[in-house]
Design a protein around this nucleic acid. Structure first.
Lengths: 130, 130
DNA sequence: CGGTATCCTGCTAGATACTG
DNA sequence: CAGTATCTAGCAGGATACCG
C-alpha cells in the first residue's frame, strides 16, 4: 500500500473551490487526504497538490505540526528524506471531511444549479425578448 | 420563537478562528446559525455578528443568495424592511455545522494543547534550565 | 432602515533565487 | 531532496461617506 499519489487526485475529488466550506487553510484538507493511507514525503505531496508552491506547502505543514495534526520525521540520509504523517488528531479530521463530501454528493448539484440560474438572470433575463 | 439574537452568540459558540475549518466565507456559517430559527432582518444579523461591516455582510448575503442558500424578501413599507431566510439548501448546511461542532467538542482541547506545547517549546525550551 | 460607492490597508500566496 | 529568503501582486475586508 501507500503507492504513489495520483496527479489528478483533486481534479476529481473537488470541483475544488465551489465547495461551500473549507477545512483549515486552503490546502489542509487535501494534505490530510494525501496522508490518509500512510506517511508521505514532501515532494510526494507536491504531485497531487501540483498548483501549490513549496513555500505555501511548507507553511501549511508547519501550521499542521503546530496544531498537532501531523508529525514530521527527518531521516539523516543522503539524499535527505523527510516524511509527514497524520497524528490521531489529524486523522480525526477525516470524519469531518467525509461529512463534507457527503454534503457535496447530496447538494452540490442544487448549489450549482442555483448559481447557474443566478448567472442567466444576470446575463440575459429579457422576460419578453428571449 | 425567533426572539432577538444575543450579542454574545458567537463569543460562546466558537473560540472562533481556532476552528480548523470554515463553512463558505468567513461569516457564512454564522449567518446560517443566525437564520436557523426563522427569518432575520439585516440589522438584526449585525447584532451577534458585531464585528462585521455592512459592506462585508451585504457581500456575504449576496453570495449566499447566488448559491441558493438564503432568500431575500423586501417589503415595501416605511421604514423599509428586508428579511433573509434559509432555503432548504441553506438549511442542509446545519448538519455540516453540527458535525463541525461535534469535532470541536471532542478534539479542540487536544488541538489547543498541541498549540500551547508548541508555543512553550518556541519560547523557552531550556531542557536543563527550567 | 438597508444598503452602495470609494478609498485604503494588511495579509495570503505566487515567482524567483538560493542553501544544507 | 527539502526546504528558506525576498520581493511583489491581488484581493478580502475595514473605514468612511453617501443614497433611496
Amino acid at each position: 500500500m501507500t503507492s504513489s499519489l495520483p496527479r489528478d487526485m483533486f481534479d476529481r475529488a473537488c470541483p475544488s473551490r465551489v465547495m461551500p466550506f473549507q477545512i483549515g487553510d486552503k490546502w489542509t484538507a487535501m494534505v490530510v487526504l494525501c496522508l490518509e493511507h500512510g506517511p508521505r514525503r514532501f515532494s510526494e505531496l507536491r504531485v497531487p497538490l501540483r498548483t501549490v508552491t513549496a513555500k505555501v506547502l511548507a507553511e501549511t505543514l508547519r501550521a499542521m505540526q503546530r496544531d498537532g495534526l501531523v508529525v514530521r520525521d527527518a531521516y539523516d540520509e543522503n539524499p535527505p528524506r523527510v516524511e509527514y504523517s497524520l497524528t490521531p488528531l489529524g486523522r480525526s479530521l477525516l470524519t469531518l471531511i467525509e461529512a463534507a463530501r457527503a454534503w457535496c454528493a447530496e447538494n452540490m448539484a442544487d448549489l450549482l444549479a442555483a448559481r447557474a440560474a443566478h448567472e442567466s438572470r444576470r446575463d440575459g433575463p429579457r422576460p419578453g425578448g428571449g
